[in-house]
Computed example of a mutant assay.
Amino acid sequence: MKKSLKTLLFSLLLGSGTLLAQSPASLAQNEARLSRQLFDDYLAKRPTIDTLKRIKALQQKLHTASHDAESANMLHYLDLCIARLESVLRQHPTPSRIEKVGDLTHQILEGSRYLAQRSQKAMTVAIR
């Protein structure tokens, strides 16, 4: 009985778009996706300003949603990466800047994935 209640609760959480859309895991997954998109846009010489704004907005939401020290440290690191990325994106593309944007977007991608996994584990533990 207890296991079926847990399964039902988990199904409800997954089925609820509003709950899942605001979960730290979902926010971090969106940030990871946007970091890949930003790099692709940069390589294709498409505008990156809107994508960067969306990443920064998600980052702010993650700061609000995450409460443990380890996540806070990762968020601070991602803040630094995003600030550096913004600085590089303002400059004319060169091979070294393209490499730097690739490195920074990869770091944001990996950091966001880490936060998503951490959040999903925390949610699983909370359901148990």
Rank of each mutant, 00 (worst) to 15 (best):
E86Y: 07
P95M: 09
T51R: 01
R118F: 05
C81I: 02
K61M: 15
R118C: 07
R36I: 00
A69T: 15
G111C: 07
L13T: 08
F39W: 04
S112R: 06
L38S: 00
V125H: 10
R113I: 04
E70P: 02
T124C: 03
T124K: 05
E86A: 13
A65P: 09
C81M: 14
I55M: 09
L58P: 02
L78M: 15
D40Q: 05
Q117L: 12
K2V: 10
R33M: 09
L89F: 08
S26E: 03
K2H: 12
L104H: 06
A21Y: 07
V88E: 12
Q22M: 11
S4H: 06
Q22I: 03
L12Y: 15
A21V: 04
L115N: 02
I127F: 09
L8K: 13
R128W: 10
H63L: 13
I49T: 14
R118G: 14
E70K: 10
G102M: 06
Y77T: 15
N73G: 06
Q60N: 11
K61S: 08
L62I: 02
M1T: 06
H76G: 09
P24E: 05
E99F: 13
I49Y: 08
R90D: 12
I127C: 01
A126M: 12
L109C: 04
T18Q: 12
Q107T: 09
L85N: 03
I55D: 00
R54Y: 03
T48L: 02
L85C: 11
A83W: 09
S87C: 13
R113S: 08
I127S: 03
R97A: 08
L104W: 00
L58F: 07
A21M: 06
Q107S: 12
L62V: 05
D103I: 02
R90S: 14
A122G: 05
A65M: 12
H106E: 11
L12C: 06
P95S: 10
V101Y: 01
R97W: 03
T94F: 14
K61D: 12
D68M: 07
S119R: 03
E70M: 12
E99C: 05
S119W: 10
A25L: 02
Y77K: 13
P47V: 09
T94W: 15
R128Y: 11
L104N: 00
L115A: 04
T94R: 14
L52K: 11
A83Q: 11
F10V: 02
D41G: 00
